[in-house]
């Protein structure tokens, strides 16, 4: 069910918790502070690189964004696998999965954009079909497919089941994407950080680490809010429908004071409905 089709929100009864908690506000503030420190260190404190010069500053954005993309899809897969597991099945896992997929697709797009900018500056091209880039594009397409599936299937159980399968496929793509630079020859460089003896040092390493913390906080903040939004949407649908049912009941016989389960009475000035031919015949048969 889409928002457009949902009846108006219930005006009486429960108030939807539309505002964030103190904890999430603190999380958001920490993310902003983290991004501020990363910007400060990245643009003014950290020195340029011997080979890449000033272009090295993309190092403080792109790897962190790409890692958060992987992490979000990992959370999506975690939620999906937990939902598929009969003992653990709960709407909470499904909410985690959809939050992970949506936030992951945002980070995936950011990865493609920042990588493209960095690639143009250093490699000399916006895009090339090497294994890492191709798999990241496939991952983004899969995430869009996941989100499209969530909107296309109305039945909640079928929707969760099918999208969980896609989520598992996405996380497998993440693993292959991560090892692409190791398994195949690529234009994209290998990892700098997640290996024994990182090849980044000093302020460059500190700033890169700070960028991971900052974008990690952004990821957490987005996840919390997307999860809450999904829960609110479910509640809105549920309570909106209940309110509509209540409103409809109040328009029924109880409201008009007539006993029994008779149909709604025509309004004053509106002609009574004409029975169709079949009904008239049935009434005759019953009368006989």
């Amino acid at each position: 069910m889409r928002f457009a089709e949902v009846p108006p929100a219930p005006s009486t009864g429960a108030r939807l918790p539309a505002r964030s908690s103190l904890l999430t506000r603190a999380l958001g503030l920490s993310a902003v502070v983290g991004l501020g420190i990363t910007t400060w260190w990245g643009l003014w404190v950290s020195p340029p690189d011997v080979v890449q010069g000033q272009y090295v500053r993309m190092l403080y954005v792109h790897p962190a964004v790409a890692t958060m993309c992987y992490a979000a899809f990992g959370l999506c897969a975690l939620g999906s696998i937990a939902w598929l597991w009969p003992r653990l099945r709960s709407p909470r896992w499904d909410r985690l999965a959809v939050a992970g997929a949506e936030v992951g697709s945002v980070f995936c797009l950011a990865t493609l954009v920042t990588g493209s900018i960095w690639g143009r500056a250093t490699w000399g091209v916006w895009w090339t079909w090497d294994a890492r880039l191709t798999l990241t594009a496939v991952l983004f397409a899969l995430s869009l497919g996941y989100l499209a599936l969530r909107r296309a299937i109305d039945n909640p159980s079928s929707r969760s089941y099918v999208s969980s399968m896609v989520a598992v496929l996405m996380v497998l793509t993440v693993v292959v994407d991560h090892y692409a630079t190791t398994w195949w020859v690529t234009l994209h460089q290998n990892t700098s950080l997640f290996k024994p003896g990182p090849s980044v040092h000093g302020w460059q390493l500190a700033t890169m680490g700070m960028s991971f913390v900052a974008f990690g906080l952004v990821l957490a903040w987005l996840m919390v809010h997307r999860y809450r939004l999904e829960a609110l949407e479910e509640r809105y649908e549920r309570e909106g429908l209940s309110a509509a049912l209540e409103a409809r009941r109040s328009e029924g016989p109880a409201a008009t004071g007539r006993p029994g389960r008779g149909g709604p009475q025509p309004a004053v000035g509106v002609p009574a409905p004409v029975p169709v031919a079949g009904q008239a015949r049935d009434q005759e048969v019953v009368a006989r």
């Binding site: 020195p47 010069g53 090339t128 460089q189 700098s192």
Partner: peptide, 23 residues
């Protein structure tokens, strides 16, 4: 022509970002 750069990063001018033209 596509320039390939490695994953090793070395600070050009430690503790200053003033002279930052690509090497």
């Amino acid at each position: 022509i596509m320039v390939q750069h490695g994953s090793n990063y070395v600070e050009a001018h430690p503790r200053t970002a003033a002279a930052g033209a690509p090497a």
